[in-house]
Design a protein around this nucleic acid. Structure first.
Lengths: 157, 157
DNA sequence: GGAAATAGTTCGCATTGCTAAGGAGTTGGA
DNA sequence: TCCAACTCCTTAGCAATGCGAACTATTTCC
């Protein structure tokens, strides 16, 4: 990742800064709205945060609670609660790490894997359908943007 | 990262659905994380929702409370609270519409305009700098994606 | 053995969004 | 004219989500 940030930024023409600010404002608006919608779509008994954690576990196999909270960019107390809810529903399992009994290893339970599968057909259908309905260029842009957004968040707080 | 998903997708082959589901999952993760970060960056005394509303007012001139809540995709009670907070800080003004005294016309106050300006330099600097540091292609992708995300949310609930 | 560090947890708080119910103003028809 | 239905907004109460501070349990280091 280029760290010539300031240089590039200050060298920009004045209207480029405005464009940046404008883009940031619109990005915030869109992201916040989409996040709201995603959060409000908890139909299965799993909330958006819970589902997000499940997805991450699905991608990354077993993680410690700390790793999971880092991956989701959430503080440990928050992840503790999310995992507790998931465990209560039998969607994940917890195991004390034998080599270091402080750490909790979280893994996707079969039930959780099943729920993710089901979600791919039910809940996400709404967004997936809309995604599919988009201009292919827009869709590609979103695909790329997802990676770009991740890069955006890569750094410090 | 370049999978040939778009071709497969327009055809809606079986594995395209999986790709959609995967994209949706990653989109959700990224969006939720970014939203969290945005929300946590309330340094001025204005929260992310409040700032978002201000930005919208800045773009759209005076709006009724209902229009504003529709624009932000938020229910009226929520917008009532946001506007109340903004008004208390002197960032927006409310006026009863003379032709229909039920409606509240919300407008950006000078103070609010000033805050948005200040924000372009201070608070958004973090995101703007990161945006500027991105690969130009990624940056373009984000620009396009913002529009695409809006389209995504255009429709019904 | 005991101090310091690390991983999670518990607790209390703030924010944010919603639904349900109510108040004020407007409109359309008997 | 008058009142019932509608619209716009507000109030009140609830639930989800995230955080920091303080605590426990465990490990590490001297």
């Amino acid at each position: 990742m280029e760290t010539m940030t300031e240089a590039a930024n200050t060298r920009r023409a004045p209207e480029a800064d405005d464009a940046d600010a404008e883009l940031v404002a619109r990005l915030r608006l869109s992201v916040m709205r989409l996040a709201r919608r995603l959060r409000s779509q908890a139909d299965d008994g799993v909330s958006a945060s819970q589902l997000s954690a499940l997805s991450t576990l699905n991608r990354c196999a077993a993680l410690t609670l700390g790793e999971l909270s880092a991956a989701e960019r959430v503080k440990p107390p928050t992840m503790t609660r999310i995992v507790a809810a998931l465990e209560e529903q039998g969607l994940v399992t917890r195991a004390v790490d034998p080599t270091d009994r402080r750490v909790a290893r979280i893994a996707l339970a079969d039930e959780g894997r099943r729920l993710i599968e089901a979600n791919r057909r039910r809940k996400d259908a709404y967004l997936a359908a809309r995604l599919a309905a988009l201009d292919p260029d827009d869709r590609t842009a979103i695909e790329r943007a997802v990676a770009a957004l991740d890069a955006l968040l890569e750094g410090p707080a």
